[in-house]
Write a protein that binds this DNA or RNA. Structure first.
Lengths: 325, 325
DNA sequence: CTGAAAGCGCTTACAG
DNA sequence: CTGAAAGCGCTTACAG
């Protein structure tokens, strides 16, 4: 049984449910004697009273939930950091995280119409239709792009990663460039954005377009890729992430190509294994912590009504140079 | 505005709210003509009706939420797989995942009493008090241990990992043994369980207890650790996970100790980097996918009332032998 | 086969 | 300063 209701508390403390509500919610602009307040709170405590979320939601038309839409793509470790920060920041305000699974096939609007969350948060931009409908329903919408219609912050960051990798390779004289793409179709959007960054820098520098090779995470595939790059005289490879970069290094080793002199490689993520590779792997560090913090702050700001348009995502990209470039 | 209610649908289709409810919920044992059903459904569709979750929950005393308690320890990539499988399996039954953050400081009972979820799922065992209170409230409780009071399945699995590592090293003749522990305090519980497995096997084999060295993920720390093991004549090291194992390999390399002949190493997780290490890293693969699937199945079974006591976690541990042992 | 009515637990004008 | 009463939207005995 759920059991204890505000009526029980009222009876126990000898006041009306109205007063119980006033006291327990600290309703502003209401005068209740300190003595009564204490009595009510003591009763609530003693009886183990917890207001029914359902009833409150029904009455106020607004729940204490924040809907978090998981993206289509696998987040990997990032999801942990993100969830952690978000759930933590929300818990401080008495809000809870409801997770929606984009891959589940259940349409988003079915969920938000049903639960009337306080805010909806996603890493991807929502469709204009979804977004407008949610706004009209008074729900705060926080996409990865902080201010409504600005191009996606995450997209900008992804391109920035590719740009940083390319510029670094060029600065170190490892030209022309190659790109080691992942084969997992779910991260294609990311890979394409990062690659676009590399391509843009090549063009700006008057270099030929990077030689793109999709790379299975296996020895054989890696060797074949290295051979392809060698034939094209590629001297520096930007890899989709550290795992792919490590594969490239292994392929080069197997082909007898020295790194970085024969083929330089730069990854993304700075996973622990990067610093133990031979030679140690240069990589772009993303500072997910900062990004997660930023997202959490954006949500909280939206809830507080301060909208926080201006606040751009601080620069979270960092090139860690090690032996592989 | 939320707007459309069952009253609107009733008016629009010329029936009572009762009938609307019967039709839309397919209430069994109720006869409504096919024609009426079609009319009601058409109205609901056309008006964009979505029953209020809050009202339904208030009325029935049971929500469509499953509360998922994130553990104290960082899950890393695992959380992604777990969430994915769980949210997917639940979405199929019209249930949604509510995430509770153990680290948030907000007590668990406050949340479950407030939202009356259908089930509560956690990777850790709940306190007996929490568990009993939830059961009494009619909430299904699914901990990592499937059947209520059996010792924690995850704990058993962790010990199994250590046992597998130790037995492998012994079989290959790499004795006596060392253990490379992590320094992150949040994973201490795991590390201790895995180490216990190693210790048990050593004892059973009549070997000295493993030499335990906590290992920072850095070159210097790794070298020092390797020196310690050398002094103790350790020939085989079980590492907490692949990241730590990779550090050990790097330390050995820097100390001029050949792997595996001078020092053999076995990790846990089979991360992509493991197969590209030099020599390639032997490791215990955990098959998180299988474990996640199993957890999702346990939740669904609990909801369906079939409890599924017997169904033990299938064996998900696998030793992948490569060059480092 | 269908409808009128009660009631889930809360908050909030509105009266006193 | 405090309370009686309405109503949020739904489901479900209960009558017809």
């Amino acid at each position: 049984m759920h059991g204890v209701t505000s009526a029980d508390v009222a009876r126990d403390s000898g006041v009306s449910r109205t007063t119980v509500s006033y006291v327990l919610n600290d309703t502003p602009g209401v005068r209740v004697s300190e003595e009564t307040r204490a009595r009510v709170r003591a009763s609530a405590d003693r009886l183990g009273y917890h207001p029914s979320v359902a009833a409150r939601t029904l009455r106020t038309g607004r729940s204490d939930l924040v809907l978090y839409v998981l993206p289509d793509w696998p987040l990997g470790p990032a999801v942990d950091t993100l969830l952690d920060r978000l759930a933590g920041a929300l818990a401080e305000r008495g809000l809870s995280l409801l997770v929606h699974h984009a891959r589940s096939g259940r349409p988003l609007h079915e969920l938000w119409r049903a639960v009337t969350p306080r805010a909806v948060v996603g890493l991807q931009a929502f469709s204009a239709r979804d977004r407008d409908a949610m706004r009209r329903a008074g729900i705060h919408v926080v996409a990865s792009s902080i201010s409504g219609d600005v191009p996606d912050v995450f997209a900008a960051t992804q391109q920035g990663i590719g740009r940083l990798q390319a510029r670094h390779l060029i600065d170190r004289g490892h030209t022309p460039l190659g790109y080691a793409a992942p084969t997992d179709p779910r991260v294609r959007a990311f890979a394409e954005l990062r690659l676009a960054g590399v391509q843009a820098v090549c063009e700006e520098a008057g270099l030929p377009a990077p030689v793109v090779v999709p790379l299975e995470l296996a020895q054989g595939a890696a060797r074949a890729a290295v051979r392809t790059w060698r034939e094209a005289a590629v001297a520096g490879v930007a890899a989709y992430n550290d795992d792919v970069a490590l594969a490239v290094q292994a392929g080069a080793r197997a082909e007898g190509v020295p790194c970085p002199d024969g083929l330089a490689v730069v990854g993304v993520d700075d996973i622990p294994a990067a610093r133990f590779a031979v030679p140690a792997l240069s990589t772009v560090s993303q500072s997910l912590d900062t990004q997660a913090e930023h997202l959490a702050a954006a949500v909280v700001a939206a809830l507080d009504g301060s909208e926080s348009d201006g606040e751009a995502l601080p620069d979270t990209l960092d090139l860690v140079q090690r032996g592989s470039t």
